[in-house]
Each structure stands twice: as C-alpha cells, then as structure tokens.
C-alpha cells in the first residue's frame, strides 16, 4: 500500500516557539489516520502545513506524492480541508455555501445547485438550507463543513477536530460520515483530543505533544504499550481504603492511586487484557471482606496516555 502522506523532520516556529518540532509521519493511503494531542500540541499547525496553508520552516512533506511547497497546486487538486474553526461562510446560507464551493470546483451553476441539494439532503440539512450559517448549531455547522469538503470527493481529507464541542448524537453522525468517506477510498487525516474517537475511527494514530510525535501505532499497539485501561473502584467504607489498595496492588501488579474522593481508588490495568486481572481483583476484594459499591473498567484517559508516554520517554533518556 502506498503512502498518502510522508513527512520528514517537519518544523514550524512562531517567534521563539517551536509549534511543530520535527514531525515524521507516514500515512498509508486509504486509511484513517488519527493525530492525537492536547491543546497546543501542534495538530492544527501540522495539518495547515500539509494542506499548503503554511510553509514549513524545515523538513519535507509529500502529500500524495507531491511536495507541499514546490507542488502546492498539485496538492490542492487532491485534498480538502475542514478546519478547526468552521471553514464555511457564516453570512451565507448553507445552500449558498455549497453552491459557491461547487462553482469554485468547476461545476456550472445548474449542476452546482443539483449537487448542493443532494449534499444537503444526505447531510440532513435540507430544512436549514436557506438559513444563514451563523444561526446553525455546532453540529449542523460541522456537517455543512464536511459536506463542503466532499463536494468533489477528494483523495485526501483533513478533518481538524471535527467533533470537538458536539453532542454524542452529532458526534456519531460525523463518525458515520467519516466511515462512509473512507469506504469510498479517500484517505482521512483526523485530529482529535479524544482517545476514544481515535480508537473508533483510526487505523493508525500518532500521539503528538509539544510539536513532537511521542508515540505512533495502531490503537491496539498504543493501548497495550500504555496499559489496557483503568480500574475505578468505589468503596462503601472509607476505613477500608488502605486495605483495598493493598489488595488491588497485588492483584493487578500496578500502582494504585487514591483519588481525592475518600471512597475512590483508581489503578491502571496491566498490559495485555484487563478482564482477567480485574475479575481476580474483584474476587479478592470480596474475599478480604471489603464492600465494593462500584467497580468499573475504563479506557486510559488521554491524560494517562500522555503521562505514561512522557514517563517512558524520560526513563529511557535517563
């Protein structure tokens, strides 16, 4: 399988700040590639360089075989971008936005109207077609924005935090749309702050922090490298917390943290499958006579992924 994107040592500085500090990416064609990172990690800056909006200060980026600086026009022919902040015109209606995009992509006006109507229909926006976008909700705006990106199906679609601020239903709609677009053969590069989103959609994930890639791999690889997830326990009696902590630490073989809530404990599950050790831990807690009100298995939060990844980086540097 060919690579849709290949970057080496990509750098972008703003004044003294290195927003992107030497990023190497290899995105296989026809897949969803997740770029995961916290605020200010450099996700948007990276995407903007790949979409020919920003000129890299150093390094090289090939998008679908074309250099983003020297062959920017060829890249623009093949990609679409849905930016982090609505890349549609707020003053225009949804329909006008799509017709404009259709015309700018070479459709003649009657064809542009037809295409716009078709997209409004499948994106569930027919009812709002004649309203100005500034009166749209976040979810509608996102859908319109994505519709504008696939007026002509691109080879490569950039989605910069497409679900930030959306309610769960709107988020699911966006996910369905992404899956359908990929099923048609488009490569999607998706930035997100949510691990579960990357997990749901991405074939591979690059975790970036402070302008660098701190981990890269399939969601499975990343999770097993971090630990499969967390166990969160709520006790009935705060007096039993120390005892419970000892039991959990032995059963799971990982450090157990006492949360601010005097009844709560959390621990990371050991690498390689959480269910077995968790079941054992629960059994041992009740064998030890500790009353457990809640026992939940969760994915590691983005925080924990980061802590784990940066811990390891420091450890290997030492």
């Amino acid at each position: 399988m060919g690579l849709a994107i290949e970057t080496t040592g990509l750098v972008k500085t703003f004044g003294a700040q290195r927003a992107v500090d030497g990023i190497d990416l290899a995105v296989p064609a026809g897949t969803v590639y997740g770029v995961l990172g916290p605020n200010g990690a450099g996700k948007t800056t990276t995407v903007r360089m790949l979409a020919t909006l920003l000129r890299p200060d150093a390094g090289r980026a090939l998008v679908l075989g074309h250099d983003v600086v020297r062959e920017a026009a060829a890249v623009r022919d093949l990609v679409s971008l849905t930016g982090q902040y609505a890349s549609v015109d707020e003053d225009l209606t949804g329909e006008e936005n799509l017709v404009l995009l259709c015309r700018l992509l070479g459709h003649r006006t009657p064809a542009a109207r037809e295409r716009a109507a078709q997209l409004l229909e499948v994106f569930g926006l027919t009812g709002a077609a004649r309203r100005q976008v500034k009166n749209y909700s976040g979810g509608m705006r996102r859908r319109l924005d994505i519709a504008a990106s696939i007026v002509s199906t691109p080879e490569l679609l950039f989605l910069d935090e497409p679900t930030t601020g959306l309610d769960p239903r709107s988020r699911n709609q966006v996910w369905d749309i992404v899956r359908a677009v990929v099923a048609r053969g488009t490569t999607v590069v998706l930035t997100t702050q949510y691990l579960d989103e990357a997990d749901q959609l991405a074939d591979r994930i690059a975790v970036i922090d402070a302008g660098r890639v701190v981990a890269e791999g399939t969601p499975g690889e990343l999770k097993s490298s971090v630990g499969a997830g967390t166990v969160a326990v709520r006790l009935r009696d705060p007096e039993q917390r120390e005892a419970a902590r000892a039991v959990l630490a032995t059963a799971l073989g990982t450090p157990v943290r006492a949360a601010a809530d005097p009844l709560a404990l959390t621990a990371r599950t050991p690498p390689g499958g959480a269910a077995g050790p968790a079941a054992r831990a629960l059994a041992e807690l009740s064998a030890a006579g500790i009353t457990v009100d809640e026992f939940a298995l969760g994915q590691p939060s983005l925080d924990e992924v980061f802590l784990a990844l940066t811990d390891r980086k420091e450890a290997s540097a030492a």
């Binding site: 903007r48 979409a51 020919t52 909006l53 623009r76 990609v79 679409s80 971008l81 930016g83 982090q84 902040y85 609505a86 890349s87 549609v88 015109d89 707020e90 995009l101 700018l104 504008a148």
Partner: peptide, 8 residues
C-alpha cells in the same frame, strides 16, 4: 476559517 478553505 472560510479563508482557509478558499486557499486550499
């Protein structure tokens, strides 16, 4: 943001 789209 719409300018970003035009520029791509």
């Amino acid at each position: 943001g719409v300018f970003d789209r035009f520029r791509t």
